[in-house]
Each structure stands twice: as C-alpha cells, then as structure tokens.
Amino acid sequence: MRLIADLFLVVGAAFTLFGAIGLIRMPDVYNRIQAGTKAVTLGSLCLLIGIALLYPAWWSKLLVIGVLILITNPLGSSTIARALLKAGVKPWSKASVSQAGEADR
C-alpha cells in the first residue's frame, strides 16, 4: 500500500515539476499558462491520491480539495488568458518570430 501511495506521490511531483519546467521554457505567456495549468492540476491530483492512500481517514477532505483544484485551476487560467487577450497581449507564433527563441508579446 505504501509503495503504491509513494508511486502516486512521485508521479504527482514529477508532473508538477514538468509544469514548472514548461513555465520556464515556453516562449510566451499563453503557452506558459497551458503548461502551468495542465501539469500542475494532474500533479496535484496525483499527490492528493497518494496522501489519501497513506491516510485513508482523510479521504473526504482530500476529495473536497481535489474537486476545488479541478474546478478553480482551469477557471483561473482561462480568466487570466481572457484578460490578457482583452488587454491586447498578442500570442506568440512561429511565423512572425522565425523561431529565434525567447520572444514576448
């Protein structure tokens, strides 16, 4: 049981790390939002599952936290993305930057 829980914890932490790497490597803010949101959401859920396996008595509160993350995280990201588009931040595209690497706005 402990081994399965630990595997969930490692996988969750790894996905969270991938999300953070994406946050650093992605060329513009929209792609960063994508990397950040997705990876961190699944990463957190895996971590919660891992903890739930370690402490089965906590399942109900962990479930509430999981659902909270699942609902609020994509909503928050969409809200930021929408605000950016309305504020006139242009998405990066390969054609216009000729893949020279880091380019913002």
Binding site: V10, A13, A14, T16, L17, G19, L47, G50
Partner: peptide
C-alpha cells in the same frame, strides 16, 4: 517526491 516538488 519532496525533492521534485521543491525543484518545481
């Protein structure tokens, strides 16, 4: 896992 999370 804790190390990976810290790096993140």
């Amino acid at each position: 896992a804790l190390g990976l999370l810290g790096a993140a």
